[in-house]
C-alpha cells in the first residue's frame, strides 16, 4: 500500500489559522518553503470549505506547485492538516492519502486527549511523543513499514 507517496512535509494548523506544528522531511527544500506552502494552503482550504456542500473531512488535492502536490484535511474543530508530497509518476489514490491523514489525525487526537495539553492555547505543539509519531508517519509513508501510527494502517 501507498508505495508511491513521498511525504515532504506535514503541517498542523490550528482553528484560528495559528501554526501548531510543521515538519520538513525533504532534503531538497528549506523549511521556509513549507512554511510558505502551509500559509498559502490556508486560503485554498477556506475557499474549498465554503464551496463544498458535503462536510467531508478530507479535502483532497489543494493545489500543485512545481514538483510538489499539497493535500488538505480539516477536522470538525477546524484544525487543518496539510501534507506536501512530491509529485510521483503514478497517480496517488485518495484512499492512500486519507489513510495517511487518518494517522496524522490519530496522533493529534492522542495529543488532545492529554489533560495537560491546552487545545485553546495558540502555542505550537511541543510534545515529544507527537513529533515522534509524525516522524514515523513521514518516514514510513513510502510503504516500507505497516502497522504503525494508527489502527487503520493494519486494518
Amino acid at each position: 500500500m501507498n508505495m508511491n507517496i513521498d511525504v515532504n512535509c506535514i503541517a498542523v494548523i490550528g482553528k484560528q489559522n495559528n501554526p501548531l506544528y510543521i515538519k520538513n522531511f525533504s532534503t531538497t527544500h528549506p523549511d521556509l518553503k513549507y512554511h510558505y506552502i502551509a500559509h498559502t494552503s490556508i486560503d485554498v482550504i477556506e475557499e474549498r470549505v465554503t464551496q463544498i456542500k458535503t462536510p467531508d473531512v478530507y479535502l483532497g488535492l489543494l493545489y500543485a506547485m512545481e514538483d510538489l502536490a499539497v493535500y488538505g484535511y480539516m477536522t470538525n474543530t477546524r484544525v487543518k492538516f496539510i501534507i506536501v508530497v512530491s509529485v510521483p509518476d503514478a497517480v496517488i489514490k485518495d484512499a492512500d492519502m486519507k489513510n495517511l491523514f487518518r494517522r496524522v489525525h490519530t496522533a493529534y487526537i492522542m495529543q488532545v486527549c492529554n489533560p495537560f495539553y491546552n487545545s485553546d492555547s495558540h502555542k505550537p505543539i511541543e510534545s515529544r511523543q507527537f513529533s515522534r509519531v509524525i516522524d514515523i508517519i513521514g518516514k514510513t509513508a513510502g510503504g516500507k513499514v505497516t502497522g504503525v501510527g494508527g489502527p487503520d494502517s493494519s486494518a
Partner: peptide, 19 residues
C-alpha cells in the same frame, strides 16, 4: 467536552464536519 468531541468524531469512521 472539548476532548470528548475530538475523540468521538475521530472514532466515527465516516466522520463529518457538522455545520
Amino acid at each position: 467536552g472539548i476532548r470528548m468531541l475530538e475523540l468521538l468524531v475521530w472514532r466515527d469512521k465516516n466522520s463529518k464536519r457538522e455545520t
